[in-house]
Amino acid sequence: MLIFITRRVASMVLTMIAVSMLLFAALEVNIENVAVKVLGPYSSLEQREIWLERNGYFDPIYVRYARWLGDFAVGDFGESIRFKTEVSEVMVPRLINTAILALCVFAVVIPVALVLGVLSGMREGSKLDRSISVTSIVTTSVPEFASAPLLSVVFVFWLGLLPGTSGMAAGFDPIQLILPAAVLIIYDFGYVTRMTRASMAEVMTTNYIRTAVLKGLPYRRVIVRHALRNALIAPFTVIMLQVNWLLSGVIVVEYFFAYKGFGALLLEASLNQDIYLIEACAMVAVFVAVMTQALADIGYTYLNPRIRFS
């Protein structure tokens, strides 16, 4: 276990360093643009030079990288040039907002997808299975930037039931969360459903299920006691990996509904070449990616007795 954790942490640190170097190198392509973004398009060349000079942009790239890395290691994420304040001050509330959105999404996706997946995998090829499968393909095929306008047209403009933006201007308002969460749920639940279905269908063809049916157990008991336990191991991994996907999947939705979350922040930072903000966001993203992967692996080992006891 200790070796496992050490290896994971080491690989996480390596990945973080690689990603941060990649980003630094990518922004090097036209570094002068940073001054234009800060000072505006009508600033003179001298003003830009002075700004770049004062903020240390003329140092060689490795010096700037080393400086950033040193600061980052002691918890100083630098200053955002877009928001003109500490990066952590901007990022933390945004992360919390996205976490709330993600919680709402998972609270619906997990039960719905698992139930539908189990129902359709239980009797492969049945009418129910076919309709659930086709529904999940259809909903996964509608991209977020298409389902968001479609849902807004119906619920905001025609029915007038929900607010069209989720800016949370007047404090936190759960009603404003419904549309962004719905868009993410629609796009996301199909994938988890299909994975659960595949896993359930595979379990249903195994010998111990046949034995259980043949020895005359009630069908309900076969499903609940015998099949579900093994069928739900694979979806657990899939759901953990969805956390990582959601972190970038929220970009379009947050942009569309003007929700002040992590994805919108990341988009704004990249559009403005706000290097320290991008770096900090990227580190969070990598951290989440590696952590969810590790949790998925640990959970898989724990849930699967064949691995646990070997």
Binding site: L14, T15, V19, V29, N244, S248, I251, S270
Partner: peptide
């Protein structure tokens, strides 16, 4: 595999946005 992990661990859309705004 390490290179693949590095690229996949980062939100893909941000890579697109960064790349397209740069070039």
């Amino acid at each position: 595999s390490f290179v693949a992990n590095v690229i996949l661990s980062f939100p893909v859309l941000v890579l697109f946005v960064l790349f397209i705004t740069l070039v």
